[in-house]
């Protein structure tokens, strides 16, 4: 029986997430033994034509060309999984969604007329149907192995949607917000990183995007009691997952308050 065909596509992104597929080291040969890596330009010049059984998509949609291209990829893909903050939320480049892209283009490029760019950076799910989203900036490479394994075995991936706090406590790390007064996005952020930052006495930066039921209002109020301003809250929510809805609403809310209060 032929192995399922795997394709990897890149949109606006840094390549870090798709490279984690090459970074799985011990598991790479195992992956190659259960799927046919048919289209993965970062790994091989050999490109086998579609359709594909499992397609991994990295990056966000930022150009009219990409907005077209993703539809063709969807048509070629039986099961489409987006990987990383760019593909699932628009990425750090979604900060453009609050700014004037024409101004950026004319500032950076000598001939902006050669550019054909959208005014927004949006996640793949805003354009086509997505079968599963793997979060993170970057994704966790073992989580990617789990997603591939789950696909091959025809089951739901074991990827949690609860808060970073659950991982943090399983690890035995005392809460940095409670014991050190360090603002932390952990309570509103999805687990998946192994609660990396709190174990080094840092607050969470929200790399895995909003958790399943984020209460950004109350967390923001707790941050304010620690002396954080509305302006700083805007910056905190506008990170790698700025355009994910709960974080977007929270940052807009605090931006309005910052303006109203003359911060």
């Amino acid at each position: 029986m032929a192995l399922p065909k795997l394709a990897v596509y890149k949109f606006a992104s840094c390549d870090g997430c798709q490279l984690s597929l090459l970074d799985v080291e011990d598991h790479l040969l195992d992956i190659a033994s259960v799927v046919h890596i048919a289209n993965f330009p970062e790994a091989s010049r050999e490109v086998v034509e579609g359709p594909y059984d499992l397609t991994l998509v990295e990056g966000s949609i930022t150009t009219p060309h990409d907005a077209e291209r993703i539809h063709e990829i969807r048509r070629q893909s039986k099961y489409l999984v987006t990987i990383g903050a760019c593909a699932t939320a628009g990425g750090i480049q979604a900060l453009r969604n609050w700014k004037d892209t024409d101004l950026f283009a004319s500032t950076v490029y000598a001939h902006p007329e050669y550019l054909d760019t959208l005014h927004t950076s949006t996640p793949i799910k805003n354009h086509v149907e997505v079968n599963f989203e793997l979060r993170g900036c970057p994704i966790d490479k073992m989580a990617l192995v789990e997603v591939v394994a789950a696909f091959v075995q025809g089951r739901r991936p074991n990827i949690p949607e609860y808060s970073v706090c659950v991982e943090c406590k399983r690890k035995g790390t005392p809460c940095v917000m409670v014991s050190q007064g360090t603002p932390c996005l952990g309570p509103v952020t999805q687990a998946g990183c192994g609660a990396l930052c709190p174990s080094y006495n840092r607050g969470c930066y929200g790399c895995f995007g909003p958790m399943e039921s984020p209460n950004t209002d109350m967390l923001a109020a707790a941050w304010q009691r620690l002396g954080v301003s509305h302006r700083e809250l805007v910056d905190a929510f506008r990170g790698f997952n700025a355009y994910a809805e709960p974080f977007r609403i929270a940052s807009d809310h605090h931006e309005a308050l910052a303006v109203a209060q003359g911060e």
Binding site: I31, V152, Q153, C165, K169, D217
Partner: peptide, 30 residues
């Protein structure tokens, strides 16, 4: 509900909360 973060910290640090989940994992080659 307005105040609670549903972050689960309370249950994780509780000395008697015992709820657990079970994950089944199969290697790639099965």
């Amino acid at each position: 509900a307005e105040r609670c973060l549903a972050c689960a910290n309370c249950t994780m640090v509780c000395p008697t909360c015992f709820c657990n989940t079970v994950d089944d994992n199969l290697s790639l080659d099965g």
